[in-house]
Amino acid sequence: MFGNRTRGVAVVVFSMAVFMGPMMAPFISFFIVENPRLGWRWTSFIIGIMSSPSIILIPLLYTETHHPIILVNKATEIRRRTGNWGIHAAHDEYTITLSELFENNLSRPIKMLFTEPILLSISIYNAFIYGMLYLFLTAYPIVFQEGYKMKPGVAELPYFGLAIGEMLGGFFCIWCEKTYVRKLEENGGKIVPENRLPPMLAGAVTFPIGLLWFCWTGYYHDKIHWIVPTISGLFTGFGLMGIFIPSMNYIVDCYLLFAASAIAGNTFLRSAFGGAFPLFASFMFKSMHTNWAGLLLGLFSVVLILCPIGFIKWGKLLRQKSKFAFDLS
C-alpha cells in the first residue's frame, strides 16, 4: 500500500503501536485489578469492548491491495457491465495446489530465514530487541515493586520512561526519512537498502547505555532515587525503536517481491524470542541479581552493534549473492 517514499513513516506508526502497547498495558491492568468495582475480568472485557468495532470497520474500510486480485475484480466488473464473458484477468486461470500453498506460505519463510545471511542475522538482532521488550515486563516489577517497594500499579508507572523513549525513537526515524528520500531521489528512485541503516546505528549505541544504566542504578535501590532508573527508559526505548524500525524497512527494501515471506520468517523468530525471554527473565534477574544480569545483556547488546556496521559496509555484497534479494542500486 505504501511506496518507497512513504513506507518508512508507515512502518514507524505500526512499530510504535507494537512497542508502546506492551509498555502502557501493565499499569492500566494493575489499576483495573485493584479497583473493587472492576476486578481482573475487566482486563479482558475492556480489550473486547475496544477491539470489537474492528469487526465492523475492517470489512467496511479495508479494500484488496494484491494487484492480481484487483485485476480479477476489475475483469468481473467489466464482464457484468458489458456482458462480454470472454474478458478475464490472468489470475483467473491460475489455480494453486496444496503443495504450492505450503511452499509459499510455510516453507519459504523458514527457508529464507535460515539460508539468507541478511535475513538471519538482522532477524536475530531484531528478535533479541523484541525479546528485551518483554523481558522488561519482568525486570521493571523486580526493580520498582520488589526493590523500591512500590505498590502494584504505581510500580508500573516507570514504564512511561520507556514509552516516551520509544516515541522519541519513532520521531527520530521519521526525521531520518527526509535524508532517505533525498538519497532515493538522487539515485533516480532506485532503492539502496543500506540507506535505511543510519538510525539503526544510533539505536544500537543508545540501547546498551540505557540497559546498563537501568540495571545498575536499579540494583542500588537503597541508595539511588527511583527516578534515575526510570530516566534510563528514554535511552532503552529510543534504542528499541531505533533498531526495530530500520531493520523492518531494510528487510522490505532488500527482498521487495519476497518481502512478505521475509517478514514472516522474521516474525517467526521474533515472536519466539518474545515468548521465551519472560520465561527465564525472573530466574536470571533473581539468581544473577539485576546488575550482573544487566551487564551480561548489555555486553551482548554492545557486540550486536557490529550488525548495522556490517550491513552498511557489506550489505550490497551480500544482496548480490542472495537468491531472493533484489539489487536495484
Rank of each mutant, 00 (worst) to 15 (best):
A259D: 13
I227M: 10
I245H: 01
S247K: 07
F258L: 13
T230V: 04
V252K: 02
M248C: 12
I245C: 10
I224S: 07
F238T: 02
S232W: 03
G242V: 10
F238P: 04
L257W: 14
Y250E: 04
I224K: 09
M241Q: 15
L257N: 15
P246N: 10
I251E: 06
V252P: 03
I251A: 12
I251H: 10
A259E: 14
A259I: 11
G233Q: 08
G233R: 01
G242Y: 07
T230S: 12
A259C: 12
I231V: 15
L234Y: 06
P229E: 00
A259H: 13
L256I: 15
F244E: 11
T230N: 05
I243P: 02
L256D: 15
P246M: 11
I245S: 05
G233H: 01
G239S: 05
M248D: 11
L256R: 15
I231D: 03
G237Q: 04
I231K: 01
Y255E: 06
L257Q: 14
L240Q: 13
W226D: 06
G237A: 02
N249I: 11
H225S: 15
Y250W: 07
G242L: 08
F244W: 12
L234W: 02
M241T: 11
I224T: 08
G237L: 00
F244N: 14
I251Q: 13
F238E: 02
L257I: 14
V252A: 09
M248P: 05
I224L: 10
L257M: 14
I227T: 14
T230R: 06
W226Y: 14
F244T: 13
F238S: 02
G237H: 03
S232Y: 00
S232V: 01
D253N: 10
L240C: 09
C254A: 07
A259S: 15
F235T: 09
F258E: 15
W226E: 11
G239Y: 01
S247R: 09
H225T: 11
M241E: 11
